[in-house]
Design a protein around this nucleic acid. Structure first.
Lengths: 196, 196
DNA sequence: TGAGAAAGTTGAACGGTTGCACTTTTTCAA
DNA sequence: TTGAAAAAGTGCAACCGTTCAACTTTCTCA
């Protein structure tokens, strides 16, 4: 177990060296200007090893430290205060989440700028974010007392997640987010079947 | 004009030969099992020529015959009958459009099945469909008497277009489409600023 | 006619990704 | 303890979509 500990430590160290080298090079020269061969060299491993550690490929190197925010999404729905609708809770959570992360780490701004200016990264970030759609839909359904695969719940989950990207691309993101969630809130609340 | 006609005819013929060869091979063996070098060979041109005709790459070969449906979207909004809301008009248009195309061409089913089962093609189809978002948003804004970049209009356009994909992936697509558009309709109508 | 645009060709490259063969590490039963 | 054999890690070479550079052919039109 001590020796297998060493093995796992080495594995983690290699992974970290790859992610660190990649992020440094990406921020220095831009995502598209750095090749995987160069990253592997900088971490002193082979290209094959790089892909063993990051099977999702080059894009995944960027998001290695991204925390999993699925739990926060679910909690925002199921532990929301009384009198707050589901869309209201999600809007609030997304607003707070954004400002919190921006204030937390100063380097985070440059990181976000790189993602915004690289189509491949925007696409991958969107896909990662939308992975939570199913879980969110189920949380919404459970909360509303509807079957877990009710189409409206999935639609609301999908639209709420996309609202973030949609608003982000605008000049006045906060206003846009409010406006979009107003639509969702009215639509959701008025079409919701009666609750117990 | 006759001579320039010949040139353009040849160009169109080459393009058609590429699209035909590609579609035939794709349907025979699957999109991922056919390489661009093979397609170019089958059409008796070089790979570079293939990319000259289809700058969007391999995926674009599949959608060569896809008609442009942007005009129909705009018309559905701006020429809708009185008393019909924008979301209602869009839902109706998408429903009719779907059944019309399925009944029109028997080979169409296999074509759709190939797209559904190939992630790269699903992604590209979605991107093509969403290209109409801006135009649709402007049509909605014009109809509602709002500024062309009003966030709610863009959101409605985006959500309405995505509703098609969202419903398509379900067991009961028609029911899902109705349910989703109910949400959008209620949300849109109830948050709409007063009209003249 | 002859300059020039447009289309095509070839061949090679590039960058991300994967397959295959090889070496090292770990396991575990004799 | 030892000695396969499984598991994990490694590197080279290849594959695939895509692009580049240099050149030829074909068509256009003043």
């Amino acid at each position: 177990m001590t020796e297998s500990g060493r093995r796992e430590r080495k594995k983690a160290a290699t992974r970290q060296a790859l992610a660190d080298a990649a992020l440094r090079l990406f921020l220095e020269r831009g995502y598209d200007e750095v090749g995987v061969r160069e990253i592997a060299d900088a971490a002193d491993v082979s290209v094959t090893t790089l892909f063993k550690h990051f099977p999702d490929g080059k894009v995944a190197l960027v998001f290695d430290e991204e925390a999993d925010r699925e739990a926060e999404l679910i909690a925002a729905v199921s532990e929301r205060p009384a009198r707050q609708t589901v869309p209201q809770a999600l809007r609030r959570m997304m607003t707070e989440e954004r400002s919190r992360r921006i204030h937390a780490d100063p380097r985070f701004a440059g990181f976000l700028r790189m993602i915004d200016s690289t189509p491949a990264l925007r696409e991958y970030a969107r896909r990662m974010w939308l992975r939570h759609e199913q879980a969110l839909a189920e949380a919404i359904a459970a909360d509303a007392g509807l079957p877990p695969d009710e189409p409206g719940c999935q639609a609301l989950a999908h639209f709420a997640l996309e609202a973030a990207s949609l608003a982000h691309e605008r000049k006045a993101p906060q206003d846009a987010l409010d406006r979009i969630f107003d639509i969702l809130d009215n639509g959701w609340s008025r079409t919701l079947p009666e609750r117990s």
